[in-house]
């Protein structure tokens, strides 16, 4: 399989309440080893995965939100967040973590990974993919 395909991982679940978010993230990190063109989409309760300031110490669960910051190292540089999903939940882009990637072709300049897009834009982006994976 030498041909590069466009993969989109669609995340629709909140973290902690179920295992979907963590498992989905692990699959992305594993899949990144196969040198494909990967991006992620956060829709519905999936947008809660990217909320800044998560601290699960008291609950005894592992806070895995720092791992999203490593996605840039794994060449997953595009994280699409649906604007309508944020608004419906009383959130805005300012509530999300600052996630960046380093552009090797631009003297390692740090660039933002999160792109807030409209529902319509996201639908079009989905249409461009070869493979859609859901969590």
């Amino acid at each position: 399989m030498s041909e590069i395909k466009k993969f989109m991982y669609i995340n629709r679940r909140a973290p902690y309440g179920s295992i979907y978010a963590l498992e989905g993230l692990e699959v992305v990190l594993i899949g990144a080893a196969f040198d494909q063109d990967c991006c992620m989409a956060f829709v519905g309760d999936g947008v809660f995965q990217l909320v800044r300031g998560q601290d699960s110490t008291q609950t005894g669960m592992k806070n895995f939100s720092p791992a999203y910051k490593a996605l840039g190292d794994y060449d997953v540089n595009r994280l699409y967040v649906e604007r309508e999903s944020l608004a419906e939940r009383g959130l805005s882009e300012d509530d999300l973590m600052e996630l960046t990637w380093e552009d090797e072709d631009d003297d390692w300049a740090e660039k933002p990974s999160i792109r807030v897009v409209s529902r319509e834009e996201l639908a079009r982006l989905m249409e461009e993919q070869d493979v859609l994976l859901n969590f």
Binding site: Y16, V51, R52, Q54, S56, D95
Partner: peptide
């Protein structure tokens, strides 16, 4: 429940 708010990054002021 405060610990569940904290885990999810929700400030009580929100």
């Amino acid at each position: 429940l405060g610990p569940d708010l904290a885990a999810r990054g929700i400030d009580p002021g929100r």
